[in-house]
Write a protein that binds this DNA or RNA. Structure first.
Lengths: 257, 257
DNA sequence: CGCATCCTTGAGGGCCATCAAAATGCGTGG
DNA sequence: CCACGCATTTTGATGGCCCTCAAGGATGCG
């Protein structure tokens, strides 16, 4: 599944090989990549559905996702709202460094492995490595860009299109880290998860999934999306990947250095 | 309207008096505040409804809003989606510094005045003033936190509650910069603007505004909201201000230094 | 094989979209 | 001061998306 260059990258940088892959990563020198890898103080495994950071909780470390999926959630007494999805290479709570406390929670979807970076270490980055500091800032701005797209998605699309959009986004993000496969996008999402991302009831999410199947755009079974026509799915969701700031032809971030 | 301390602040820092006011501002030394003020290279006035930055456009400056309201918008061929609102003290396109190109546009709602900071200047901040760099980072993370709340708002609230939530947010943000008045929140928003923020049709936005009036929570006329019961309005919208990271009792950001 | 979780289907009602049209308010020029 | 033109706001009617309540079916795990 991994092409040779990425495989060797995984060996050289076991914890941070996917950090900003497909984005700024290629603008970083080998020395920079090594430095980023060296920031990791240790790793942690978390079982599925466990919470890494609770809303409001004070922390003095941040975490980069190494394997598995995570959600950012805002929970109320009776319902959970998912405001973002993370996959390997993403810092899931880097903003905790500057904000000190998070306005939301970060939870594991399936079994995950994360790399830990102490905030004291990040202090040093700010003092000594402005280029890396800026890359970290960039990473949080990327999250913000995704947030904005979700806002627009919720303002304009109906439930089946929202689902299609979310899967298109994940596929593109996986492509950027060379982890996508051609015909299947495997996720650990339940239909309840999908509903909570789209802001609809699980029953309606089910009907929306059915509609995508009836339209013969894709088949979603137990979280995994199967399709042989990504183009049709992307068109259906009106998906434009430029907000992900990838290196592709539409890239918004050319000229960074 | 301005209490003496803020008034004097406006004199000492005519362009940046509201920057992070009510948030990190009080953790910055007088020297830091002076430094921030010195970053401003000049000011610019823009008439209502004019675009400051177009989506995809390359820029080498960022802007802080000094007076007036601005929107962040994503426009398609047939419709406009508003993904954020800015008021004086906000950097409206600070993320352009690290991202180079924006995924969305920034437009003036009424006549606005902005302060310009060259990206070359911000380079210097990253190199020499990590504390200020971190404050700038914080400012962009605050935007991201607001984005997340909007996502949750769109996932859970119906149109009248969305409108109430947006006005509650603006009132709190104005309070943080000591620019709120007690019984009226004056904005230049049309009902079309409100509709584009809430992701509903202007016709439905009108009915939603009517409903808020019928419930005797507030009166919204030509963008201005009048109420003598903010508490009832906040409860109706299930508004919790902690995501704004203000200095109040619920503050999530205590301990920053 | 039993149980828990997840998925599926049906029915009735509320929120919101669109089409169409009228009324209101505001700035401008006569 | 009034008349006009324009943007904005308001109202009515019909239909689609999505809600909740309720119940049944499938899947996977110990």
């Amino acid at each position: 599944m991994l092409t040779p260059p990425e495989a060797s990258s995984e060996i050289a940088f076991p914890q941070t090989a996917n950090f900003l892959a497909g984005r700024l990563r290629k603008h970083l020198e080998h020395d920079d990549l090594q430095y980023v890898e060296s920031l990791i103080d240790g790793t942690l495994s978390l079982p599925a559905r466990e919470t890494l950071v609770e809303r409001g909780q004070r922390t003095d470390v941040s975490s980069i996702l190494i394997s598995g999926f995570m959600f950012r959630t805002i929970e109320t007494s009776d319902r959970r709202y998912i405001v973002g999805v993370h996959l390997p290479g993403d810092f899931v709570d880097l903003h905790g460094f500057a904000l000190k406390r998070l306005d939301h929670s970060v939870v594991a979807v399936d079994d995950v492995k994360i790399g830990i970076v102490r905030h004291a270490t990040l202090e040093g980055v700010m003092q000594e490595r402005p280029k890396i500091a800026r890359a970290l800032w960039f990473a949080t701005l990327l999250d913000a860009s995704i947030h904005r797209k979700w806002i627009q998605m919720l303002e304009r699309l109906d439930a089946p299109r929202r689902i299609a959009h979310i899967y298109c986004e994940l596929q593109t993000r996986l492509e950027l880290t060379n982890r996508a496969s051609e015909r299947a996008l495997r996720t650990p999402f339940t239909q309840q998860d999908i509903a909570d991302m789209c802001g609809v009831s699980p029953i309606h999410a089910n009907r929306a999934v059915s509609k995508i199947r009836e339209l013969e755009l894709a088949e979603i079974r137990r979280g995994t999306l199967y399709t042989d026509n990504w183009d049709a799915l992307r068109e259906y969701a009106d998906f434009d990947p430029s907000y992900l700031y990838g290196d592709g032809p539409l890239n918004l971030n050319e000229g960074w250095d």
